[in-house]
Simulated scan of single mutants.
Amino acid sequence: MSVGIVVDERRGDGGVLFTLRGEIVHGTVEPLTGVLTRVPADAGSVTLDMAGVTYMDSAGLAFLRAVDDFQRRTGIPVRTVHWSGRPRRVLEFTALDDDGAPAPGPSAAAREREELARQLEEEVEQLRQALVSRPLIDRATGVLMAAEVCTAEEAWGILRETSQRANVKLRLVARAVVRSVDGPPPEEPVLSALRFALLRHRRT
């Protein structure tokens, strides 16, 4: 199915919205760009909604060049929105932004990949910290079980409450508890939070 104009309406702000559906391939560019001749000379802007465009090959670049020529010739700004799938990847591979102009920096898709990579790196770091912290937390749990004659679940609850009340990472609370066995007691605010958590446990 070739690209067709589905909606052509003047918006309240004087702009024109074209909604496109189908494929941008050889033979569709000329009639597609021809619809721009229907734009009133006094239009404030043109928006091309690309959500329904399911496929675009190199012919799409000719379409974008025609759109750019239209902007330069008429002075009417044209926006393309809602790129997705293969058409968006074509933009990415050709280093164009969502409006089909040369991107001044990384494309939107590239920025999305960078953000996903950053999130994955954070998750990996969190998992690494968890693996490193687990033995320490288990030792602290054992210390509290022996000192308070409580279950592992109760000892875990004391550590977690201490961490939350002191606003200190759980592994740092665990380290302070383990060190207190043969060394000085935990420093503030961990000490106060730990005392409060222990008192609550002893009252239950």
Rank of each mutant, 00 (worst) to 15 (best):
M1R: 12
S2Q: 11
G4E: 15
V6S: 11
R10S: 08
D13E: 08
L17I: 12
L20E: 04
V25D: 11
V29G: 04
E30C: 01
P31A: 01
P31F: 06
L32C: 08
T33E: 09
G44K: 09
T47M: 10
D49S: 07
A51G: 00
A51S: 05
V53E: 01
V53S: 02
T54A: 15
A59W: 12
A62S: 15
F63C: 15
R65D: 04
F70A: 00
Q71A: 09
R73W: 01
T74E: 02
I76D: 05
P77D: 07
R79Y: 08
R79Q: 12
T80K: 09
T80I: 11
W83A: 05
R86G: 09
R86W: 14
F93H: 13
D99E: 07
R113H: 08
E114M: 04
E114R: 04
E114G: 01
E114P: 03
L120V: 14
E121S: 09
E121R: 12
E125V: 08
Q126P: 00
R128G: 14
L131T: 14
V132E: 15
L136G: 09
I137Y: 06
D138H: 06
D138V: 11
R139A: 12
A140R: 00
A140M: 01
G142D: 07
V149P: 00
A152H: 11
A152I: 08
A152C: 11
E154S: 10
R160I: 00
E161V: 00
Q164D: 11
Q164T: 10
A166C: 05
N167T: 06
V168A: 03
K169A: 15
R171Y: 10
L172C: 03
A174W: 08
R175L: 14
V178F: 02
R179I: 00
V181E: 08
P184V: 07
L191D: 03
S192N: 06
L198E: 10
